[in-house]
């Protein structure tokens, strides 16, 4: 069944979009990631103009994050105070990112910027995750090696403007969370992602937050930052396609529930290795497109 998307102005198969939403939903359910980093490139492959893909996936992430954060609120695993500090940084970063996005769009380089961001970040995260989970797997087999002790005092603890974050059990400066927020906000605006895949490791390793509040807090921040991004894209570029977002959503919601069930049956290390490989495959595909000589050197500019 073909469906005409009013903003993207292309006709695509609705089942392909549902399947795409479903696939990303399954992955997000299995691995607990938002899936924005997968949905945006997949939308490029289906033929959605990049500007619309980035803006619409921001809208779709709002829905999946709302769905996820509610469960965390019930379990009281959201650090609202830390979330708000990250959010302030996120909004600043998002505004900066949007400026960069629009500037490069005017220069006809937005595809390059988006693809480069994807290749770099997916490459780094994928490689780190793979190494880390392979090491964890080896450790689990050998039953040797000591549990990692979190460093109590790093440079993070010597900065001014300290604040108490009770839910996280931290007393640290607000500067690192604001910087993390700005970085993630910028990436969100440029790549059309929530940025959880960067924020979560940053919260654990840089801020030293306990793992149990990390996911809920990052989802809380992501809801507001991606909402802000959606508004900016809708207001300045008119590129949010509500119909596309809704179809992806339906697929995503069902997929997430299936994914959660699959996730329960697999071991954590196996899951992480699979996710790492998946991230690396997407990275490789996008990277090759930049490196291999395209069959058509010319393209017609959109919008």
């Amino acid at each position: 069944m073909q469906i005409f998307l009013p903003i993207a102005e292309v006709s695509v198969n609705a089942f392909v979009l549902l399947g795409l939403g479903g696939l990303v939903g399954i992955l997000s359910g299995m691995f607990g990631v938002g899936g924005g980093f997968l949905i945006t490139p997949l939308l490029f492959f289906v033929g959605i103009p990049p500007a619309v893909a980035v803006a619409t996936s921001a809208n779709q992430i709002v829905a999946s994050s709302v769905s996820g954060v509610l469960a965390h609120f019930k379990r009281k695993t959201v650090d609202l105070r830390m979330g708000s500090v990250l959010l302030i940084g996120g909004l600043i970063g998002s505004a900066i990112g949007m400026q960069i996005f629009n500037m490069l769009k005017a220069l006809g380089q937005v595809d390059l910027l988006v693809t480069l961001c994807y290749v770099v970040f997916l490459g780094i995260i994928g490689a780190l995750m793979l190494v880390e989970s392979l090491r964890a797997l080896r450790r689990a087999k050998g039953r040797v090696g000591k549990a990692r002790e979190r460093t109590k005092h790093t440079w993070v603890h010597n900065l001014p403007f300290k604040m108490k974050f009770r839910a996280s059990g931290l007393y640290i400066s607000v500067i690192p969370p604001i910087v993390v927020g700005i970085l993630v906000g910028m990436l969100g605006a440029i790549m059309g992602v929530g940025g959880g895949f960067i924020m979560v490791p940053a919260m654990i390793y840089i801020l030293g937050m306990p793992t149990k509040v990390v996911i809920g807090t990052s989802l809380f921040q992501i809801i507001f930052v991606t909402s802000f991004n959606t508004m900016l894209h809708a207001y300045t570029n008119h590129t949010v396609d509500m119909m596309l977002a809704m179809i992806l959503l339906v697929g995503g919601v069902v997929g997430a529930q299936i994914g959660t069930q699959i996730g329960l049956k697999l071991k954590a290390e196996q899951l992480r290795i699979m996710l790492a490989l998946l991230v690396l495959i997407v990275c490789l595909k996008l990277g090759l497109d930049l490196l291999i000589r395209p069959s058509e050197l010319y393209s017609i500019g959109v919008i």
Partner: peptide, 17 residues
Amino acid sequence: YGLLSLVLAALAGWGAS
């Protein structure tokens, strides 16, 4: 339009959960 798409997204997320 932006607000409407956000409200719909939030409702869909809440509804699904």
